[in-house]
Simulated assay, not measured.
Amino acid sequence: MKKLYILLIINTLFSFQANSQQLVLETGKAITSFDYENSQGNQLDNLQSTNQNYMYVGYRTNMLKEFIHASFGVNYSTYGAIGSDTSVNSYFEWETSYVGLNLGLDFRLFNIKKLNFYVKGAFSSEFIIQGTQTLNNTVYDLVGEDDFDQTNYFFRVGAFVEYSISKNVNLFIQYMGGKSKQMRSSVSNTDQEKLRLVTHNFGFGLFINLKS
């Protein structure tokens, strides 16, 4: 399945290249956390968010003049959380890295001189490439674990501001926030545990014109 996603990424990137108008380069910080509930519906106490990194490379093209744009690309993201349980004197930490395909649609709301203001929605399909869980002084590999080693789906919404630096390059600053679908449990279908990844991405990047 992972090989199929990699082939799909390569094939789609080359097929989009001829029609795309802009190359998109983006990086930034992500505040990430786990939304976890046990089988009794109780959330895990003392579970804190962590600051992680993400990167995105893709193509963006206009669908309706300069008001609606579609984008496609590849993202690399890290997610994690830390916590403790004072009742049993334990410490735990997760850090995972995912690569995925990303589809987006943005709408321009208004502009002021060289500033353009947009709202955006994006969907991504991601799979884990590296991950660890630290429990007290023991580190566990999460790759191959059913709860994490599965395709993860995100839907994010947000907004960005675009500023024209030159005829061929625009700078943008963006916020995107979202939550993954409920991750499949490694236990039976009757298990009521719930786990989702929550992210708040703050980034900046460049739109580089490829075709007028």
Results as ranks from 00 to 15, higher is better:
L195P: 01
N42E: 13
S186D: 10
N89P: 00
N152F: 07
V99L: 13
L195R: 04
A18S: 05
I82C: 08
S164N: 09
Q48C: 15
F107C: 11
N89V: 01
I68D: 00
G144I: 00
Q21T: 10
N168W: 15
Y54D: 01
V88M: 10
T50D: 06
K120H: 10
N19A: 09
G41T: 06
G100Q: 02
K65W: 04
N111L: 05
N189Y: 11
K211S: 02
F202H: 02
G83R: 10
T190A: 08
I31K: 13
S39M: 14
T78A: 07
D106M: 00
Y36C: 11
T86G: 08
F155K: 09
S15Q: 09
F204Y: 05
Q48I: 15
E26D: 05
Y163I: 07
N62Y: 05
N75H: 12
T151W: 06
Y140K: 05
S49V: 11
F107Q: 10
N168L: 14
G177I: 08
S185K: 12
T27N: 12
V161L: 13
G80H: 03
Q182F: 11
F207K: 03
F160M: 10
L13G: 05
Y175I: 11
F127R: 12
N170K: 15
N102G: 05
G203N: 02
K194G: 03
S166L: 10
F16K: 00
Y91Q: 07
K3G: 08
Q40K: 14
S90P: 14
L8H: 00
Q22V: 08
S97Q: 07
L135S: 12
V143L: 03
V157H: 12
D149Y: 08
Y36Q: 14
K120C: 07
I6T: 07
W94T: 12
L23S: 02
N137E: 11
K211Y: 02
Y140S: 03
S124A: 05
Q192W: 08
T50F: 07
A30R: 13
Y98I: 10
R108S: 05
K2Y: 08
L7P: 04
S125M: 14
V187T: 15
D35E: 06
I173E: 12
I31P: 06
N170G: 05
Y153N: 15
R156M: 15
K113Q: 04
F117S: 00
N89Y: 01
V57C: 07
E145S: 05
Y163M: 07
V157S: 15
V57N: 09
S84F: 14
A81R: 03
E93P: 02
T138I: 15
K181A: 13
G104R: 04
N189D: 12
G205L: 01
S188M: 10
I165E: 04
I173L: 14
G158T: 04
Y163G: 03
Q17F: 13
Y79C: 07
Q22A: 12
V143P: 00
T27W: 09
M55T: 09
L197I: 15
D147Q: 14
Q192C: 05
